[in-house]
Design a protein around this nucleic acid. Sequence first.
RNA 1: GUCUCCAUCGUCCAGUGGUUAGGACACAGCUCUUUCAAGGCUGCGACACGGGUUCAACUCCCGUUGGAGACGCCA
Length: 475
Amino acid sequence: MTVRVRIAPSPTGYLHVGTARTALYNFLFARKNNGKFILRIEDTDVERSSKEMTDIIIESLKWLKLEYDEGPFFQSDYFSHYIDHIPELEKTGGIYRCFCTHEELEERKNKVIEQKKAWKYDRKCLNLSKEEIEKNLQEKKPYVWRVFIPEGKTYFDDLIHGRIEKDNSEIEDFIIVRSDNTPVYNFAVVIDDYRMEITHVIRGDDHISNTFKQIHIYRLLGVKPPEFAHLPLILDENKAKLSKRSGTVSVLAFRDMGVLPEAFVNFIALIGWSPGDNREILTIDEMIELFSFDRVAKKGGVFDYKKLEWMNSKYITNSSDEKLYELVKPFYKEYGIDIEKFDKEKVLKIIFSVKEKARYLKDFPYLTEFFFNDIKEYDKKGVEKHFVEEKLKHLKVLKEELKNLDDFSEHEIERVFKNYVEKTGIKGGDIIHPTRVALSGRTEGPSLFLMMEILGKDEVLKRLTKVLESDILKI
RNA sequence: GUCUCCAUCGUCCAGUGGUUAGGACACAGCUCUUUCAAGGCUGCGACACGGGUUCAACUCCCGUUGGAGACGCCA
């Protein structure tokens, strides 16, 4: 039997980090087993669902490169299919009409809660006589369909947790069809998973309590339930379920701050799963190769932004300059720099010069701004510390030596500096720091000699002259 | 409150009866060096508690405590 799994987000918000990881594990499991990975949009809540959100989900999945084999399917396209199963379910005697109104329910519920007891539907409509039902129907009283839960125990063997069991007395006669004749989630899921021949339901463990209910629907349908794998949740720093309140949870927000999709996928894969050894950096193919449910943790894991940052910086340094060039382009644009207007070879060198320092793609423009624009202001502390008479006088001499340098390359420049230091006996820093501030306005940045090579002889001399002849000295 | 799930460094993972309990992030320090959010090295730091089972428990069982999740005509 071919493995068929699905990711079933509801388009009521952005694609959540947790949903992304669930999608990833589904994807890995499908690829590992040569199965199919299917996208199904759970939009039975018509009021809260929207087209825009659906597009965002698809875009997010695309960005993560979690390509689905089938879909997207929309539950709203199948409303009638779900309801079609009602007569057959009714025949089993396992479901019944409930005419209780919200108000009645609320009232009875409050009474029970006042007594500090757990509320469960009290089955008021379970034993309605045929006549009463007919009468209600005649009066066009709205009703919902509920599933009758018999005595006994409900259990399933979870691929991650092992057997999970619950006494049926803890499960209420839940609703599967609303009074407006639309299916409620638990019902739609079962019908869809059945209809789509889903073999493995891989989802967050916040669905465990739903699973018990769904098993009863399968029972009434006379269908064997799929395998279940309930993933531990992703937590925030307070160890609560990661939610909008916790901070950034939208997958696209990570893209927009310059996280590489490969880094993101690698990072979330490792929350709740391990390749079996101490590897941290893995390609998607390695993950597919190594994926298995017995390497999935039972315990929820905290989303550690610092580690994501570290991992992203690793991926950035390991990316080629050419690839980075394309990735970084929009971030420069947003910063007001059109890198395409500059010599590409030069830009590639610029990217190379800082890629080990960047944590996010969005760091690049700031880190390299002085290559593209004139220096607007010099770091105050740097000026105080390095633009002092005795250091600048060396700078003046050095400038002349640089002027005579024909091969303005990193190594030749370095040689000039080394020679000068040797000749005069001053410390390297005494000349290097002032130069850096003069050329970039900053006290930190890429390797100085490489920076000078990239800037080019003319620009270097120009910037040095500007400092040496300006009134910065008189501060 | 009821039910369910869970429990190794601050965090993410290894460890499946006998280990000096391992790696990574973070943190601290040292170092390299021309700076740095980079590199290198070192350090700090955990088996929640109590009972069993066993020659032997971080590992198995039970309980306690703690945490989380679910308790919608939401998904």
